[in-house]
Structure formats: structure tokens, C-alpha cells
Amino acid sequence: MNKPAVYPLAMRVMHWLMAALVLSLVFAGLTMVKSLGPWQQQLLAWHKAMGLLAMLAILVRLYLRLRSDTPKLPDSVPKMQQIAAKLTQLGFYILLVVMPLSGYLMQNAAGRPLELFGLPLPSLLNTDLALYGLFREIHGWAALLLVLLIVVHIIAALYHGLIKRDGVFSSMLRR
């Protein structure tokens, strides 16, 4: 079967928009849990709103991924690296669902109201300390895992783009 050389336009656009969104969310999150700065609340409100947006975006992205024909890695890429690439992709999709979901549920378990542009959102959980602990820890540790995956992903992409020049990098870039 013939595979395309580049990802469909919709997937490329979603990839880069979400890259910017997720990076900002991760940086904001890691900063705001430590800072006592006066802008911390602003950042928190922004993180929640953008996190809800990311929750919708990942649904669109999953839909696109499942219905699109995507390029496969060139045969020159060793088998182990092919498997690693697949696992990284899978890890991204899982984490990008887990992150906003755990964020939403930890707010529910803390009894904190959530809203999106002034519209109150339903609470799915009772206020509960252990449940808050569960989702708060998932949210925190999944974020660290996500940072690790992003680092691996960027370095691998740069490796293909700068050293190998085998078309893997441009499959997410070319017009």
C-alpha cells in the first residue's frame, strides 16, 4: 500500500498548534505550582481555560489520527527505533488525554468550581481528599512524563532533520 510522504494538512496544523499549547501549559503548570508571585493566579486561570481547550483539541486530534492515512517511517530506520517511535506516539496520545482529564477531575475532587468563558462546568466527583490526592498526583507525574517525552521527541526530530535528512522531519512540516 502506498503511504503519503507527509501528514495531512489538518494533522500538521493540529500538531503545531497543540505543540505550542501543550508547551505553554506545561511551562505554566510547572511554574505556578511553585511561585508565590502575584501573577500566579492569572496564570492558573489561564492554565485551566487553555487546559479545557486542549481537552477538546485532543479529541479532534484522535479523530484525525484514526481516519487519516499517515506516512510510515523509512526502511532505513532500524527496527528498534521504529518501535520506539510508535511507543512515543502512543505515549503522547495517552498523556494528552490523561493530562486534561486528571486536571478536570482533581478540581472536582477539591470542590472547586470550573468554568469555561463564564459557563459553569459540571462536577463529576464528590469533594474527597483521597480522590483529590489521586488525580493531583496523576496530573503532576503525567506532566513530568510528558516533559520527558517532549524532550525525546524533539531530539529525535532534530536528529532526523539535521543528521539523517531522511524526510521524517519534513513529513510534519512540508507544505
Binding site: 506545561v26 511551562f27 510547572l30 511554574t31 505556578m32 505550582v33 511553585k34 511561585s35 508571585g37 500566579q40 513530568l144 516533559v147 520527558l148 517532549i150 524532550v151 524533539i154 531530539i155 532534530l158
Partner: peptide
Amino acid sequence: VVAAAIYAVSFSGR
């Protein structure tokens, strides 16, 4: 990339 990640995880907001 590695330095930015270490900064974000360990030092930002400290």
C-alpha cells in the same frame, strides 16, 4: 531542549 526541560521542572517559579 534538555536545559529548558530541566529549568522548567526544577527552577522556574522558585
